[in-house]
Design a protein around this nucleic acid. Sequence first.
RNA 1: GCCCCGGUGGCGAAACGGGUAGACGCAACGGACUUAAAAUCCGUUGGCCGAAAGGCCGUGCUGGUUCGACUCCAGCCCGGGGCACCA
Length: 862
Amino acid sequence: MKERYEPGEIEPQVQAEWEAAGSFVAREDASRPKYYCLCMFPYPSGKLHMGHVRNYTIGDALARFMRMQGCNVLQPMGWDAFGLPAENAAIENGVAPAKWTRDNIAHMKAQLKSLGFGIDWSRELATCDADYYKWNQWLFLRMLERGIAYQATGTVNWDPVDQTVLANEQVIDGRGWRTGATVEKREIPMYYLRITDYAEELLAALDRLPDWPERVRTMQANWIGRSEGVNLSFPYEIAGTKGTLPVFTTRADTVMGVTYVAVAAEHPLAAIAAARDGSVRAFVDECRRGSVMEADLATMEKKGVATGLVVRHPLTGEEVPVWVGNYVLMGYGEGAVMGVPGDDERDFAFARKYGLPIRQVIDVEGRPYSTVAWQDWYAEHGRCVNSGPYDGLGYEAAIDAIAKDLEARGLGRKQVVWRLRDWGISRQRYWGCPIPLIHCPACGTVPVPDDQLPVRLPEELVPDGSGNPLAKSKAFLDVACPKCGAAARRETDTMDTFVDSSWYFFRFASPKNDGAMVDERAAYWMPVDQYIGGIEHAILHLLYARFWTRVMRDCGLTSIDEPFQRLLTQGMVLNEIWFRKPSSGRIVYHHPSEVEARGEGAARTGVLKSDGQPVEYGGIGTMSKSRRNGVDPQALIERYGADTARFFVLSDVPPDQTCLWSDEGVEGAFRFMKQLWKLVHGHVAGGAAARPDAATLDRAQRDLRRQVHQALAKVGDDIGRRRMFNTAIAAVRELYRALSAFQDRSPQGRAVMQEALELVVLMLSPIVPHAAQAMWRALGHASLAVDERWPQADPAALVQDTIEIVVQVNGKLRARVAVAAGADEAVAREAALADPGVAKFVAGQPVRKLIYVPGKLVNVVV
RNA sequence: GCCCCGGUGGCGAAACGGGUAGACGCAACGGACUUAAAAUCCGUUGGCCGAAAGGCCGUGCUGGUUCGACUCCAGCCCGGGGCACCA
């Protein structure tokens, strides 16, 4: 063992040993408990950033820990390789997305390897590989057959200059990010997956995921959003045609307060009105501008225009005016809502603005009501008033009565309403999985036969920002109809990349099977025992994966319902955001390291180091490629080694907590590695040591041994149960101080030290595996530390005869007294009251009450 | 706007089921070693009062429950995440 700690030398050597031993190649083995430890696979953006290092270090430390618990561990890795950034890079640099993506994968794979993660690389996959996405296509066709996939129209952001569909991210303040053109909404045909058919099950099953964070389950439950509502219809006769206008409501008890209905700009009634009336037409045109994002719709000014059309109230027969509202979405519900200004805040504001009548129909405990100003309690549940036959009824009774009357007239019925909407998977983009359909002039839309799968994505195309390159590629487009053989055209839409990430964990368990999506190996490994990834995926990705797994189950591909047994949502690594926004054109982000910054919070300002001109502060946010605020860990690894980087990212913050990036403190982590190394070196230089003989240890030796075993128990609990690497590390650092202060060089003293160092090395081996391996060998072991079992704390070493308890007077800490371990209340009481510090505050007053928490504290109440 | 989470020293944090607030580390300061610096080692470090012993205050804000509240409840302020085409 060298005296100096040289990670640059140790780490490649140890990695080569693991490689030679095949340490991380996972094999199905029914004789051992399996443990599938999975981190969310990365998008190959170019370089790893600190969020990745944090995520994969947590996963690797856990995987190694579980391996030491005797589990057969699988830890795979792959690439979420389709997506928008590759197309943007292509537009910028003229490189094909495939080449850009694969170059990035090669670089990031090398980075991951240098960090020493115990990954089974033989199972590596990239979602842009045809042998992977073939099965997206295959299962999509099964979904079509089962009616889970269907076609309908959907609304997208349309850039009229580039003639391109834009992602929400590409719409900035209602304008296209490259062209600056005002974005329009456009209705186009899309494919949807019926996730709503699974809504009930996806919601109910959340209760059976006890090892998921509470907040994730709450978010999913709210997202799925079950509510009981009423579907009711307003009959009408317009332009000589009779019809009904259906709406959904969860507040049917307020239906007697309806004073208008609002329809979406794309609604058929709006079209009828627009044809007659120029002002309606102008408003409908205006509604087409702006983004389709929920957040924008919820915060924008609510506007409307009267159509001049009327429908009839389903219960009173009263005429109700029809308005077009910019806040009503065609793709959501029925594309129409009833307006109850009296008891709904948004409708109240709308009615005030346009002079529509406001009628109170709910009374909340007799609280005052005025149509002049909105008060929060107007929207609460209460009793019906001004509601004719329903007056006096409470929320539930009113809904029951109203639903019954509506049903009797054939104009409504109760219905369970879900907030969740079906999953639109069509993307008008090149770098994604082709949807396996062919459009034939004679036969219509025809599925690609299974034996012609995969529909391969041509990899040499370079997008230019306008439209989908697939639509311009004759080689891709032209195809014979599988049914009639006539000239036909391929579908050019590709799938949402969430499809790719909805089942990759199954494929890791059944890699390289050309004949089937999954096989019996997946039955061995699935479900994932521990899934680890960013909290930002708490809803969409995890919900889609849960849905997809159920579809696979219903197709007979798996017997499990839930893909992820235990979930750890890693907190994000944040960094500052700096940008410049030119008056026209694309927003430009600058890396925090390029900015000279001053001040805090709202007062924070900065200038670009390169030109001295101001840049705008965008607050703090997640590290992302698009905002150019990622931190490349490469410099850290090169300077300090992988172990220090790993130790550092785990040492300060619990895994599920957000952290603001700062590399201050990494020196401290490196210092600790050097100190520990030196301690082991100094011990080993003294020659071989025996096993400690517990019976003959002196007091100091026994105390040290107790500290070692206490730390061992704590570290095992912190990692195994609590997933708190930071407190585990703190416990080891505390122990290190005791060890370095222990100067006993007698044979027994050295024996205690040998045991202590071996245990410390094993405790740290999941976190700093390279250094741990080198020290393990130096301590005289021929084996690989990675194959060692997690040591058990010796109960005999933990025994303590006296303990210190805290004494409070009226809840304030006044003294600490020593009592025998296991002392009862009488003994503790006597010891507490005898203490002069306590007596001073009791000062002869009678003790009204005494609370004793055994082994912890006494509280004297006077 | 809606849903979820967070706020504790100069900084990152700990306190696990209501029971010692600030473990562990960073930074800073003082000291040892050195011709000097770096590195290393030792010590101090929430605020206020005090020579000390010790005392008082203190976990975003305002209230409440409790013998006892960082922890539970109500209301607010600030920060972060998600909002269905970023991944």
